[in-house]
Amino acid sequence: MRIGVPKEIKNHEYRVGLTPQSVRELIQAGHEVWVEANAGQAIGFTDDAYLNSGAAIVHGPAAVFEQAELIVKVKEPQPQEVALLKPHHTLFTYLHLAPAPELTHGLMASGTACIAYETVTDNAGRLPLLAPMSEIAGRIAVQAGAHCLEMEAGGRGVLLSGAPGVPAANVLIIGAGVVGTNALIMAVGMGANVTIMDTSMSRLREIDLQYGNQVHTVLSTITALDDYLPEADLVIGAVLVPGAAAPKLVRRSHLEIMKRGSVIVDVAIDQGGCVESARPTTHSYPTYVEEGVVHYCVANMPGAVARTSTLALNNATLPFVLALANKGTKQALLDDANLMKGLNVFAGKLTSPEVASSLGIELADRKVLVNNA
């Protein structure tokens, strides 16, 4: 199969869909790989490294899309990339379509088979291709939040760990999934006073058994948010409904009761955000202030540590890329129910129930469409 790796063009996005090591595996399996010039240059994956792995280097995204059948990316395609997609393409990348109606309609119009990393499952119902980026995003969230609490960043001048004779900062984590758990690891490690909320009592029990009195566990309710938000110095929004838009748990009215100079990091911003006042920001301009509260809502947070993120992502995605390349898209989807769940758009139809519900678009049966292709 012919596989293409374009250079990412989203703001400050330096990750790349395939590493030279992954390219070598695909070449050894008998496939051809085209990589856009300088696609991985910023993170130390040089064109020479790709050439030595057996890839061809081409200039400009149009050349990649023209050569390839399977397009492997990291972030959702930007408008100029959507324009290059054709019905014979398969796109394998993060899509996050629930809050993106324009992108969704553009992908449907392209006729491309679009498989989203974030909705591929495993046999336990987990999200193996979302997990590595969620782990990194959860850890970055605390680092970014700690910086935003500094005076020059607009924060209230609080150190997460406190100091001898000075209390530690209060960190509130909303959601105890992969993002929340990794934020918890960082916040505890930095010496903060940590509270984590979730709707799952079984998950809260697990955290309580692991951390004991190092962490406060609270069942997530409207009342609990009303009680804990006024005390928080740093709030991490770590809510996920797989494939669907995130629920708005922190309301705009909550900002009025929060401390001036406190910080919200909304990691759910890729799925529309779990904070009503959140809007996507970039690594160039990561924050804004509303009602005296600093908001950090960067939509590609793991891109800040692009080399680590690329390596972690490839560890998870390579087996699926190999399956798509070895079997072809149709057979790979039919052979793997977990990969099939990643299919969001096919033959001009929307095939994700969660996205269809979020955007009010008619849902097509993915299995029927693929079988009849």
Rank of each mutant, 00 (worst) to 15 (best):
L204I: 12
G189H: 15
E25V: 00
A192T: 00
V370N: 01
G177Q: 04
D336A: 12
G17Y: 00
T199P: 11
A246V: 03
E362P: 12
I174G: 04
I71T: 05
L130E: 07
T195D: 08
C148H: 09
G212E: 06
L240G: 05
G60P: 04
E231H: 15
A246N: 03
L160G: 08
V178N: 06
E231F: 14
L350C: 04
G175T: 14
I236V: 14
D365N: 14
E8F: 04
G157E: 14
L240A: 06
E8C: 01
N182T: 06
V218C: 09
Q28A: 11
A238D: 08
A312I: 05
P87K: 08
Q331K: 15
V72T: 03
P128V: 00
A268Q: 03
I207G: 03
T287S: 14
H147Y: 12
G125P: 08
A98L: 12
C297V: 14
T221K: 08
G175W: 05
I57T: 09
V142D: 02
G177A: 03
V23L: 09
F346Y: 06
Y285R: 11
L159D: 10
V178P: 07
Q78K: 12
V250E: 05
R366H: 05
L91H: 07
D122H: 10
T119Y: 05
Q67L: 13
L172P: 05
N193T: 14
M108W: 04
A373I: 15
Q80R: 08
L159V: 08
G272V: 04
T221M: 09
N193A: 14
N38E: 10
G342N: 02
V305I: 09
L51V: 10
L127V: 07
P164S: 01
T308K: 04
A246E: 03
A306M: 11
I269P: 12
P77T: 15
H283N: 04
E66N: 11
L240T: 03
R139T: 02
L51I: 12
S220D: 10
L363V: 12
G273Y: 07
E276P: 01
A83P: 13
A192I: 05
F45N: 06
I136D: 00
C297I: 14
N170P: 15
P164T: 02
T221E: 08
T104E: 11
V368G: 02
V158A: 05
V33H: 00
L204Q: 06
L160Q: 10
M108R: 09
T329N: 10
G191F: 11
A244Y: 04
L209C: 12
S110A: 15
